[in-house]
Design a binder for these strands. Structure first.
Lengths: 333, 333
DNA sequence: CTGTTAGCGCATTCAC
DNA sequence: GTGAATGCGCTAACAG
């Protein structure tokens, strides 16, 4: 059995209130008794119990983290960063998975409230509007989400990606997204398109429509593939390598999010990484400020960072793209 | 403000206990008042609050999940499975990251206790013995861990891997591990070595000692690489492909854990997958049984499952391995 | 059979 | 400077 406040008090012949005061430093306690209390606390290894404190103060010291899909490979970095930031602030993290389902998401939010979470960090399902819940909340998503929001500047990330490729001399790009409905992905693609200067052409494909024949696109003159996720960049890279292309000799490949494997493949995947520690810190801080009714900073946009590895290089010297262009028709593999 | 029992009771002119009884069905309540209560509950959307209940019953409905490294790519599948299993049992999940540090791990465990977790699921740091804490616990690790343990049968997984390659006609294997100190990895390697029959040779490398020159090993006659993690298998695969080898034409590659990317590369990575749903279900069930003081099942070993994809195939027809063997000495890259 | 009182552990009044 | 009383929300044990 864990020692409780009452035991400490009895052992010292004082009241529970005195012990509580000695620990919190709120009520006035003589230096002498305080020392006695501190020592006893250490001796028996007392730690104030959560439920009692939560009931009394209305704060549980726990934050809810609601995600659309824990198994998403981007999650580990985010969860770790948030756990670390929360821990630093003395808060625990209660996780829930909405499985991409808006109904499950609402239910998860309700459970968080019920469990006594002090606030909620939510990465919403696609197309979901987080309606006002009765708790401080912060959304990690795309900047177009209204309200309290902390997120990467996906658009700027897209711009940086394209500018970088342009500097390397690339003139014909292939942009690869998964789903138009993903705010994050469409932001990234929009950023890329923003950065298309004169002389820079890009063709955009959404994998939800079907898989483009990358080998053919490269043969026709594309010299770089930009995918909105390292996962798709990896698929592209291994497929192109398997088809006999050299990366980055024949074609450069660039991804997003710096997933766990991106540094470990050959060649390493150049990518735009999210600054998870910054995002997590901002998100946690945002919740804590709300709890204190402090003035809130505006929605925060965290810049993405280019991580250059081996999968990108200078555009290949002018190759004979003209003569190979009028080849056979589309054969989607 | 969330409605509390007191409000319901006052609105109905009964005591809070009656409302509680009506909801739990424990104490006997007249059918009539029960109906009234149920209706009111629905009307105001009441849900019993966690902290109060936790204080009274001593159960918080929350399980702690302590991991050595959340950013490990194996984590998403495990966390998702555990969250799902816990949710099904009406339990929430509080996560903590020990960052591979035994001290941080003990601290994380203490915090879980303090926060009122009902039990703890722990994936321990390497070389850590989980000393008796004051809570029901279950360890997910290697089978050699004494005490309450649920885990994959890593040894059997290793055996299956090698047997499968043997059936494909492979005779010379390269076994790739990261660290000898990892119980999981050494179990897997041990299983592989168990399965080495006559006529089957295998050389084992630990990456902590340095990176072997896989290309050279293949040139000398190895026809299959087995890595104890898909992450290393991926590294091997892309490196070999980059060096001009065909996978699986020249060399087969096999990994463990079926990580997120394994199905998405070309060729798909053949792997031994952990049955996360089974592990998670068993772990959660194990904790709940402990809470009810029910008889505990013995430590449970969950079989691993071979997932065949494109990275493995029949051993190449006899190639001239002899003449290349007496080459220059080992040059570890 | 029904409904009420008591108290879980803690922090906070307010007397002393 | 210290301690007894109070109540946070809930339910197990008890009285009606």
């Amino acid at each position: 059995m864990q020692p409780r406040l009452k035991e400490i008090a009895k052992a010292l012949g004082v009241s529970t209130a005195t012990v509580s005061n000695a620990l919190s430093g709120k009520g006035r306690v003589s230096e002498e008794t305080r020392k006695l209390v501190i020592e006893k606390i250490r001796e028996v290894g007392y730690r104030p119990g959560g439920p009692g404190r939560a009931l009394r103060t209305g704060r549980s010291g726990v934050l809810g983290l609601v995600l659309p899909d824990i198994s998403n490979p981007l999650f580990p970095a985010l969860a770790q960063a948030i756990e670390t930031a929360a821990e630093r602030a003395g808060q625990g993290i209660l996780i829930a998975d909405s499985h991409g389902d808006p109904g499950a998401q609402s239910e998860a939010l309700r459970r968080m409230v019920q469990r006594g979470a002090d606030g909620i960090i939510i990465v919403p399902c696609r197309g979901t509007q987080v309606s006002d819940l009765s708790l401080p909340a912060v959304v990690i998503d795309s900047a177009v989400t209204p309200g309290n929001c902390v997120c990467s500047d996906h658009r700027q990330g897209g711009q940086v990606a394209v500018e970088y490729l342009q500097q390397l001399g690339h003139r014909t790009l292939v942009l690869l997204g998964q789903s138009r409905r993903s705010l994050v992905q469409s932001d990234r693609v929009a950023g890329m398109q923003d950065a298309l200067g004169p002389g820079l052409r890009a063709e955009t494909f959404w994998l939800e429509d079907g898989t483009p024949d990358l080998a053919k696109l490269v043969r026709r003159g594309a010299t770089a593939i930009v995918a909105t996720s390292d996962l798709h960049a990896l698929t592209a890279l291994t497929r192109l390598q398997g088809a006999g292309f050299s990366v980055p000799g024949d074609v450069s490949v660039l991804g997003f999010d710096d997933l766990s494997f991106s540094a470990r493949i050959t060649p390493g995947l150049t990518t735009l990484a999210q600054n998870m520690p910054d995002i997590a810190t901002a998100a946690v801080e945002h919740i804590l400020l709300q709890l204190e009714n402090a003035p809130l900073p505006a929605a925060r946009l965290v810049p993405m960072e280019l991580v250059v590895r081996g999968s990108t290089g200078p555009a290949p010297a002018e190759r004979p793209t003209r003569e190979t262009r009028p080849q056979q028709g589309d054969v989607t593999t």
